[in-house]
Nucleic acid binder design. Sequence first.
DNA 1: GACGTTTTAGACAATGGCGCCTAGTTTACA
DNA 2: TGTAAACTAGGCGCCATTGTCTAAAACGTC
Lengths: 224, 224
Amino acid sequence: MKGHTQRGQCAKRMSILDAAADVFCRQGFAGASIDEIAAVACVSRQTIYNHYREKETLFVAVVEDVMNRANAMLFSVLSSFPDSADSLEDGLTAFAVRLNKNCICNHDGKFLRKLVQTEGERYPHLFEGWRQQGPGKLTTALSALLARLAHKGALVIDDFDVAARQFVALANADLQMMTLFGGTPTDEELEKAARNAVRTFLKAYGRPVMEKDERQPQLAAIAG
Amino acid sequence: MKGHTQRGQCAKRMSILDAAADVFCRQGFAGASIDEIAAVACVSRQTIYNHYREKETLFVAVVEDVMNRANAMLFSVLSSFPDSADSLEDGLTAFAVRLNKNCICNHDGKFLRKLVQTEGERYPHLFEGWRQQGPGKLTTALSALLARLAHKGALVIDDFDVAARQFVALANADLQMMTLFGGTPTDEELEKAARNAVRTFLKAYGRPVMEKDERQPQLAAIAG
DNA sequence: GACGTTTTAGACAATGGCGCCTAGTTTACA
DNA sequence: TGTAAACTAGGCGCCATTGTCTAAAACGTC
């Protein structure tokens, strides 16, 4: 009848989804109670059962909703990857900041990582999609983007997949512990973490340039 | 009376702790039932209440027990860090393998990371100790060990803390997704991941050596 | 073999959550 | 304004779980 099991619908649905995400994330599936979700959503308990047959149905809907948002955000962030060799360090740093801020350290990212750990064994198929569309897509897409930069001569990479995983790992190196313990990094911390990561990444994979003021010494020598 | 709230005690206690760790890890605190723990431990439910006043007491004891084991293991692995500049790549790779295998990808490591995410907000003081003795101690100790290597001239590092965090991050780069989804890496995967990590780490922080077959060209030139 | 301790099995009340139902109210739309 | 849908409040049965209690059995030690 109503169709659109996906989008908007009335405001109640979104309110329920948001509240359920909040409570499920804090209490886990078993620890979350429908009554608490209803209270947080400012909605009667019956209304929840009116939209979702049972607790598990609601849980699946919540996870899928968050996954959709996270996937869209990841796509958006990936499309902002720098494709020019000019000011590569700044471009990669800005990308790393966006990646951390909008995909990994944000609300949805923490939700998914937390839930996939607690309920992953119970709902393997549910999170399998995120594994492929989320972290999996991130590394494969990033691998291709790095390959493009390497092809332009801006990077020297032997294994693009490994480099992609290492870029993500380095970008999170300074924030991992904070996010593990529930904290949220400030903008300054995000910036500093990204800069540390990109500097090390470029030391390992950057084109070997001796000094900043004399770029591409080989080409300069050949030209001269 | 019995003293020793820590160690051995009768075999029942250990059996209960192991079973409780297993069930708490799979089901979370709220989802775990005393009956299931008793069944896994092959022990009567009353025996559990005989040793631990209530469910929460048992949970705290389990977490402390795992934390103690993990801390001891971390200390052991840290003491195997290479202190010689000879065959540094092999030494660091072996260290990275041990770090992943015995501290991060192992049973206790996954248990603590999982539980600190699900119950960390509910028991902040409980996991605060692990935060300092576990990941915190790892990075500070590793920072000092890297500083020692840099002082010997084997590494060129400007910020030891950042380098330590990046070493850990790189060591986990290839295994992060697998461990996140509950998998356990094989020995070959551990070896390959460590080798990838150390190669990148040394490209970024290793002493700038031109070719593998001519080591320490400066010293050779001086000697010659 | 006797005695104290520990463990076991099962019953027990109390609690709380799930899912359903109903009656009454609000909202949306024609 | 009238009708149908959605929503609210509350009660209800059912079930799982917690924590206690008791009597019987196993254990270990002298």
